[in-house]
Design a protein around this nucleic acid. Structure first.
Lengths: 208, 208
DNA sequence: GTCTATACTTAGATAGAC
DNA sequence: GTCTATCTAAGTATAGAC
């Protein structure tokens, strides 16, 4: 069926596999399913990627590569001085929005015990820490909260919003909560976190 | 091997299965593994629970039942008026600490697309919402943040701390962050969230 | 209630023709 | 490079003795 073009074939396989791995996890996906979705045969997949394991690694590699090519765009605002916390929340929020399959594949992996950082992740966290420490030095945010706690608080607020989405929608449907939009949520947590991190005296910051 | 006591046998099976489901997920666990860990035979497991599916449902049921029996203890502080947000953070934090297998099994399920609320979860969320709305009415916390956003912010901060633990430890190990203790994290996020939710004027609350 | 033996199904992977 | 046919291993589940 395919154009007898190795590179194109590999791309097709990777694309189908990434979708399926995101949906059902690595263990929950069979080579046959990847074959079906890509319109190719199982043995051809193994021909190009040696084993299922190899296919998984290739998918992760492809995601990381794509992500790194994109990093300049998403994370570059290193200059943004005063509003670093807002920038960080926004970037995390946008990241989850823009990379759903990567997030889901990472989630499957983490549950399965894979705690190793992905691709350029370390670099980003070092940048987070450095920027937060710098903001603390400049008294732009409180210095009695550790950078790790700030990062976790922000990551958590964003993670839950996107990853518990269906679950929270159930609660909304049952009348436990009133729904709010993505933008409203982003604004509201930004406001809470920003005010919660504002230094004690004087520095009342203007509200958005 | 077992004492030919059906109830005791079921308990053993459920216990082994719960551990394994938490570790590896439902799909990632085989009946043979449950048999091995419980010291019983595969067919005996199927005799008592009909199918693997039946075993999974039974494990979930057992967890929910245990949880509900415990709810009075963990979540009862309905009286705690002023400090509701603190109470809520503490309860969530303690819950993750005390119920690791339940949390992991719920995580596997959610990733696999099971968004239905568990057991008495709805009740708890209705209580959250009601308590938050009441606190807003009393002007104890800001009323421009939706209860859903507050719940998500708190759940997220707690979720990430326990569920990204190994992952964050990797970042600490690589020098991206300085480590902090569970208690320090709990104190710090409580402080940030509490201050972030404090009403605008006058009501400067005393710090812990 | 519990086990051993085994049937049936599906997964990953290989052989070999084209 | 790609497919069909097939092997082998592993999973769920059943049969039937004890």
């Amino acid at each position: 069926m395919a154009a007898r073009d190795g590179e194109e074939t590999k791309r097709r396989i990777l694309s189908a596999a990434e979708e399926l791995f995101a949906e059902k996890g690595f263990d929950g996906t069979t080579i046959r399913e990847v074959a079906e979705r890509s319109g190719l045969s199982g043995p051809l997949i193994l021909f190009h990627f040696q084993s299922k394991e190899g296919l998984c690694e290739a998918v992760k590699d492809a995601i990381v590569r794509r992500w790194q090519a994109d990093l300049g765009g998403t994370f570059v605002p290193k200059g943004a001085a005063g509003a670093f916390v807002e920038t960080m929340i926004e970037a995390a929020f946008a990241f989850y929005h823009d990379n759903p399959t990567m997030v889901r594949i990472a989630n499957w992996g983490r549950l399965a015990g894979d705690d190793a950082p992905w691709g350029g992740e370390e670099e980003i966290h070092r940048w987070y820490r450095a920027s937060l420490v710098e903001a603390q030095r400049r008294q732009e945010i409180r210095d009695d909260i550790s950078p790790l706690a700030i990062t976790a608080l922000i990551s958590g607020a964003v993670h839950v919003w996107w990853e518990f989405r269906g679950h929270m929608e159930e609660h909304v449907r049952q009348g436990s909560y009133d729904p709010i939009s993505d933008d409203a949520y982003l604004d509201q947590i930004t406001s809470v976190i920003r005010r919660g991190l504002a230094p004690r005296e004087g520095s009342e910051e203007k509200e958005a």
